[in-house]
Nucleic acid binder design. Structure first.
Length: 423
RNA sequence: GGAGACUUGUCCGAGUGGUUGAAGGAGCAAGCCUGGAAAGUUUGUAUACGCGCAAGUGUAUCGAGGGUUCGAAUCCCUCAGUCUCCGCCA
């Protein structure tokens, strides 16, 4: 969420940034400022009323003690009027605040100056390419067919147990999952990330904290009986650890990593994009989250991006890094790099990681701040990235490493799997 | 799931209707003291919003939300959490 203060101070830059993000409702900026002006006036009036009422109460107290019941009664009547007024004033203020909030939550984060212009994925800028796309032999199969050929991932069985998008991993398929999770966690650990195991159900406050609520409510599974949401990403619980927290400047950088299953309803998705492992309702992911000093967050973003690229290199997967254009970036992000691996049989680039700097956009909602010395608390910057999401990595490994004799496991994973071929 | 006790500032802890944003202590910071440190001593030490160039000042906040009252940390209700006992159970 943006601060009204920022809208006031640099309105032109805000409007330019919003336009770059292809945000249409530019009038909301002025509306927010006007609403905030009203809010200030209303608050002033309320404070004035409450202040008067408070003084009267004190006087009543003294009169009562002195036994001047009648005088006290007079003031009581006077105060009753004030009380009525302040109550309606309170309601007025609250509704103004709510209106202001509702305007502000509609405004997306402003893009970093280096974000390319553009409105569709075609406008994303390829900033890095690694590896060559493998030539497969005649008769090579897409991963979903490899899954059933070697009986390692069973989509139909998942349909029986739950529904589409909830596959059952079997045998070497299951072991490969475990291997990847451990490999990713160990890598993150070596990079200085602190491992946490958060709950995978969260309350509404956490949903609001990272911005899944209120607008992306339909994306999450919801347990009505206890009012819990299944997390769509570990970002939600791991970042919310720092909701309403004031860090010290010397705590930076805060680096956490977590493996969790992720749950996404993916309402509206269908067709070939969701074939096999391309899009699931439940999948595994290792996430990295950092909280950083505002002056260092972009340095950190590059470091995270390099780190994720390093993992993909170790897995020997061809990939490219995209800097997303203004129109393709997520609502909360100021700068996002997407990492896509090439899936050789589908001949498709698959997004396996998204590394973003949210600057203070999330921190504002979270009330995540830091203090430098004895100064006032300042909003921190938050960043996160997938490192990595499993299913598409598995798809790429299966497709790219297939041979007529089976699937070769990347060397770096063999110590984790305990086998080097799926056949 | 049932019964009871509890939830106060960074921490410990006082406070059962009247000027309490909150005693006292610890911690932390600064000053004095010291060759330096410890001890001692003085001062300061929450957050949000508003007003003010600033010093400062108004309002709100004692788990959360609501209520009673002229006035609530203190009384009542709802919810959440912690602890103890019982029940159940990986």
């Amino acid at each position: 969420m943006l601060l009204v203060q920022n809208l006031r101070e640099d309105k032109e830059a805000v409007l330019a940034g919003l336009s770059k993000k292809k945000f249409k409702l530019l009038h909301l900026v002025d509306e927010a400022i006007n609403k905030d002006d009203i809010r200030k006036k209303e608050q002033n009036q309320l404070d004035e009323l409450l202040s008067q009422s408070k003084k009267l109460s004190e006087q009543i107290g003294m009169l009562m003690k002195a036994g001047k019941i009648e005088d006290a009664q007079k003031l009581k009547n006077e105060n009753a009027i004030l009380k009525e007024e302040s109550k309606t004033q309170q309601e007025r203020l609250e509704s103004i605040e709510k209106e202001l909030y509702e305007i502000l939550v509609q405004l997306p984060n402003l893009p970093h100056s280096s974000v390319p212009e553009g409105s569709t994925p075609n406008d994303n800028e390829v900033v890095y390419m690694h590896g060559s796309t493998p030539e497969l032999y005649i008769g090579a199969l897409p991963h979903w067919e490899l899954c059933s050929k070697y009986d390692i991932i069973d989509f139909e069985l998942g349909v029986k147990l739950t529904g589409a998008g909830f596959p059952v991993y079997k045998g070497k398929g299951a072991k490969l999952q475990r291997a990847l999770i451990n490999f990713f966690l160990d890598s993150a650990h070596n990079e200085g990330y602190h491992e946490v195991q958060p709950p995978i159900l969260v309350n509404a406050d956490s949903g609001y904290g990272t911005g899944q609520l209120p607008d992306k409510e339909g994306q999450m599974y919801f347990i009505t009986q206890d009012e819990f949401y299944l997390i769509p990403t570990a970002e939600v619980p791991v970042t919310n650890i720092y909701r309403n927290v004031i860090l010290k400047a010397e705590d930076f950088p805060v680096k956490n990593t977590a493996y969790t299953p992720c749950f996404r309803r993916e309402a509206g998705s269908y067709g070939k994009d969701v074939r096999g492992l391309n899009r699931l309702h439940q999948f595994d992911k290792v996430e990295i989250v950092q909280i950083q000093h505002p002056e260092k967050s972009y340095e950190t973003l590059e470091e995270m991006r390099t780190y994720v690229a390093g993992i993909l290199m170790k897995l020997n997967l061809p990939f490219r890094t995209l800097k997303l254009c203004g129109g393709d970036m997520s609502f909360a992000s100021a700068l996002t790099y997407d990492m896509e691996v090439f899936s050789a049989a589908q001949k498709k680039w698959l997004e396996v990681s998204s590394v973003s700097n949210f600057e203070s956009f999330q921190a504002n909602r979270l009330k995540l701040r830091y203090r430098e010395g004895t100064n006032k608390p300042i909003l921190a910057h938050t960043l996160n990235g997938s490192a990595l999401a499993l299913p598409r990595i598995v798809a790429a490994i299966l497709e790219n490493n297939q041979t007529p004799d089976g699937i070769k496991i990347p060397e770096v994973l063999v110590p984790y799997t305990g086998f080097d071929w799926i056949n």
